[in-house]
């Protein structure tokens, strides 16, 4: 179990890490577009949307990089799991009230063409589970810092 769990954790780290880096790049480069995507969901007060659009992509990018490198793995996994849960709730909200908007998950809503569907909810749920796997099973293996990684948490 222990042997298996370290490989499962590594795979989960790579999946979530690369997805978060990929998802953050467009948002980091185009915060204005991402702010529009956030406003489309009509969840946050509009005054806050720019602040979130400026900071959130960097948290996504940083957490993704840390997961891949195996540095501060569990705190990063806690962040990714938390972010994915928030994204899932936003998608459920949009789906539930029938908002006719694009996801804006990997680019801006303007660039994206696909509307929010049940597939998005399913995909996000799977990602929450994968991210939670890191949180539960990671023991600091395959870390750039070696065994010192576990000293941080």
């Amino acid at each position: 179990m222990n042997m298996m769990s370290k490989y499962i954790s590594l795979l989960a780290r790579l999946i979530i890490g690369f997805i978060f880096i990929y998802a953050s790049v467009y948002k980091v480069l185009n915060p204005g577009d991402f702010a529009v995507s956030i406003r489309n969901y009509m969840i946050l007060p509009v005054e806050w949307t720019n602040f979130v659009a400026v900071t959130l992509p960097w948290v996504e990018l940083g957490a993704g990089i840390l997961l891949i490198l195996g540095i501060l793995t569990r705190p990063s996994a806690l962040l990714t799991t938390g972010m994915l849960l928030v994204f899932l709730m936003a998608l459920v909200h949009a789906y539930w009230i029938g908002l006719d908007i694009n996801c804006g998950c990997f680019s801006s809503a303007a660039e994206s063409t696909e509307k929010i569907s049940f597939f998005y909810l399913l995909r996000d749920t799977c990602l929450v589970i994968i991210s939670a796997v890191i949180l539960v099973f990671d023991q600091g293996h395959f870390s750039l810092l070696g065994k010192n990684n576990r000293k941080f948490v």
């Binding site: 720019n50 900071t55 992509p57 957490a63 705190p75």
Partner: peptide, 29 residues
């Protein structure tokens, strides 16, 4: 630890936004 990472990365985002030509105002009007 998670909170520390969140704060550090958020400040990084704010700093980059401040110097970037594509930066936006932090409070949307």
């Amino acid at each position: 630890s998670s909170l520390a990472i969140l704060i550090i990365l958020s400040f990084l985002g704010l700093a980059v936004n401040y110097v970037s030509p594509r930066g936006i105002s932090l409070v949307y009007s």
